[in-house]
Amino acid sequence: MAPKKAIRKEEWDRRLHEVQVTKDDLNRLIMDYLVIEGYKSAAEEFSQEADIAPPVDFESIESRMKIREALQRGDIEDAITRVNDLNPEILDTNAGLYFHLQQQKLIEYIRQGRIEDALEFAQTELAARGEESPEFLSELERTMALLAFESTGSAPAGIAELLSPGQRMKTAGEVNGAILESLGQGKEVKLVGLLKLLGWGEQLLADEVEFPRM
């Protein structure tokens, strides 16, 4: 194989410099993130400070935030009610999302040590659904495995992570995305897309040429 071509630092810097992007552009990327992730007050402040029009009304951010807060404090029932208040179709048309919410509810029972409730809930609500799809079943199994460990600290990482805040965030993110989608809004945070493109591009380019790293 021929030696990889290298791009010199000066050339690279020149190209970096030539990229057309303005502060306004970047401001909008930030705003996109604040709105989609529901940072309502930050979005409001930013709209003022950066003199940038908000892409949505702040109230819609508020209702999504309430739902997310409910999920984050583990009140799944409240979240489900609120989502249905907003638009019942969201959960009706999205079996996977509904299952994940119920799974989260089961997790919360277990976290609180309400073993009886957990078992009953699993048997009445989740077992039947586990038969619907292999993905549901394996998720159910994984969740039930939490009960097998005396303290969550002794559980293997793959199972213990169900109890982490990350798991709640994940569920909350999923719900958030579904709501945004139902509102006809983009649900992908552009900043995440940017980072993905960065990683994708860096990897591909590194295979082809040498270039100065960041």
């Binding site: 410099h17 970047l26 990327l29």
Partner: peptide, 16 residues
Amino acid sequence: LLETIYRQTSVFVSQL
């Protein structure tokens, strides 16, 4: 950092 990342990514993309 955000701007650096944006620029960097843009250069990756156009070079590729």
